[in-house]
Amino acid sequence: MVLRRFSSWCGSAFNCFVIAPQKPLSFYNFATQEYFRKYQPPTLIVWGKNDHIFPAEGTYPYQRDLNDVEFHLLDTGHFALEEDGDAIANHITQFLASRLQPIPV
């Protein structure tokens, strides 16, 4: 399992990080949704509520299909990382810290 970054949905403007197997997954297609329903990976969704390209309604399939989903709707537009990168970094850090086991050294 690795932390994978998906940016294929909307070029480099959209960023999604998923803990997933090393085999490729395309973002937001039936195979990916089926994977989510079957394996139920912990998922963090950070979305811009003012994004007119991908409205917040796009999160509903994830919230419906996943049991362990953490959702944050930020007061940003389509370029949420550029607008509120520090808040997103904090959400990612807290999410990973709450769900990943430390590796013994």
Rank of each mutant, 00 (worst) to 15 (best):
I53D: 12
I53H: 15
I53V: 15
I53Y: 15
I53A: 14
I53S: 14
P55I: 00
A56D: 00
A56S: 11
E57F: 12
E57S: 14
G58C: 13
G58H: 08
G58V: 01
T59E: 01
Y60H: 01
Y60D: 00
P61F: 00
Y62G: 11
Q63T: 05
Q63W: 01
Q63G: 02
R64E: 02
R64Q: 03
R64V: 06
D65P: 10
D65E: 11
L66R: 07
L66D: 00
L66C: 06
N67G: 05
N67H: 07
D68L: 14
D68I: 14
V69E: 04
V69H: 03
V69D: 03
E70M: 14
E70R: 15
E70N: 11
F71L: 13
F71S: 10
F71T: 09
F71N: 01
H72P: 04
H72G: 04
H72S: 07
H72V: 08
L73F: 04
L73Y: 03
L74D: 02
L74V: 07
D75E: 10
D75Q: 12
D75L: 11
T76G: 12
T76W: 11
T76H: 12
T76N: 11
T76I: 15
G77M: 09
G77H: 11
H78W: 03
F79K: 09
F79E: 06
A80D: 00
A80R: 05
A80N: 04
L81R: 10
L81H: 11
L81Q: 07
L81T: 04
L81C: 08
E82V: 10
E82D: 07
E82Q: 11
E83I: 05
E83L: 04
